[in-house]
Computed example of a mutant assay.
Amino acid sequence: MTASDAISARYGRTPKRRRRDVLLLAGGGVFAALAVIAWVIWAGLDSPTQIQAKDLGHTLRNDERAVDVTWQLSVPVGTDTACAVQALNEEFAVVGWKVVEIPASERPLRTFTETVRVAQEANTGLISHCWLT
């Protein structure tokens, strides 16, 4: 054994150690890839019902300190839903918030308009998000 080999062995830089490190890294990479693939499949199959809400517009009613928000909701037939409607000011801070309970219907696509009272002057109103109830 040469002096260089002795020093490498002393500090753990042997060919056997390198192979082991490469195998551990490859195994960890394969495990991480399988975990990501499993999560993507699980997340895709976990949402059997699709809820989509689309902002259509808003009307500012500053004399009454309120905003009328109009949106379109697409949910499966016979599904109860709730939506959070919000009003924002110029700094995009929420100045009004309202949760709207939407009963089930035979129509999968519906349009709603809801009035949101505001604490300060608002410059926009929109649908925040919707969920099943």
Rank of each mutant, 00 (worst) to 15 (best):
Q86T: 13
K98W: 06
S4V: 00
A35I: 08
V77W: 00
P48R: 07
G57E: 08
V99W: 07
D55K: 06
A82F: 09
A104T: 04
R17D: 13
W97S: 15
A26H: 03
L23R: 14
V75E: 02
A32H: 00
E106T: 12
T2L: 10
V36H: 05
K16C: 01
S8R: 13
E121N: 07
T49M: 01
P48C: 04
D46S: 15
G28D: 07
W71K: 01
V22L: 12
N123G: 02
D63K: 09
P108R: 10
E101M: 11
L34G: 08
T49Q: 06
V95M: 00
A66D: 00
R107Q: 09
V75M: 08
R117G: 09
C83R: 11
L88I: 13
L56Y: 04
A26K: 07
E90V: 15
N89D: 15
P108F: 03
P103Y: 08
I127Y: 10
I102Y: 06
V100Y: 14
T133G: 06
A53D: 00
K16I: 03
R65L: 13
A35V: 13
G28Y: 08
T59W: 00
T79E: 04
T59I: 14
M1N: 04
F112S: 03
P103S: 14
G78L: 06
E101N: 10
C83D: 11
S128W: 14
D5W: 08
G12D: 02
A93M: 15
L24F: 12
W71G: 00
L60Y: 00
N123V: 14
A53H: 06
R18Y: 11
I51M: 01
A38L: 09
S105P: 04
R17T: 07
T113F: 06
F31K: 03
N123R: 12
A6Q: 15
L73F: 01
M1W: 08
T14H: 09
V94W: 03
N89W: 08
V118Y: 03
R17P: 05
W42L: 12
T115V: 15
A122K: 04
F31G: 06
L88C: 02
A6G: 10
A43L: 05
R13W: 10
A66V: 10
F92Q: 15
L24D: 12
G78Y: 09
R18H: 10
W131M: 03
I102K: 11
G57P: 08
L132P: 03
V85F: 06
S105R: 07
